[in-house]
Amino acid sequence: MNESRDDTIEALLRQQFEGPVADDGFSERVMQDLPLHRRRATWPLWIGALMGTAACGFCIDTVPLFHSGWRDWLAGEPSTSAIGMWVVMAAFSLLALVWGLVESSDR
C-alpha cells in the first residue's frame, strides 16, 4: 500500500516535470562565447621532474650503501651492498610503474 502511494507521488512529480528544454539556439550562443582553450603549460612539470631528480641524487649520494654497492658492481664483485642497491632500485622502479598504471587507469 505504502509503496504504491510512493509510486503515485513519484509518478505525479515526474508528470509535473516538463523534461529537457529545447535548444532554440542556446548551444550556439554558448559556443560563440566560449574562450580559447589555453593549453596547460608544461614547464612546471619539467621543473618538478628536474628538482625531484636532483633531490633523489642528493639523497642517494649521502647513503654509503650506494657508494660501496656501485664501487663493487663496477669492480665486478656481486657483494651484498651491490645486490642490495639493485634490489632497492628495482623495488622503486616497480613502485613507480604501479603508480603510473593506476594513474593511467583512473583517467
Binding site: 516535470f17 516538463e18 529537457p20 528544454v21 548551444s27
Partner: peptide, 11 residues
C-alpha cells in the same frame, strides 16, 4: 557535449 546536456541542465 553542450547539445547533448543543455536540455536537462536548463530544466
Amino acid at each position: 557535449l553542450v547539445r547533448r546536456n543543455q536540455g536537462m541542465v536548463r530544466a
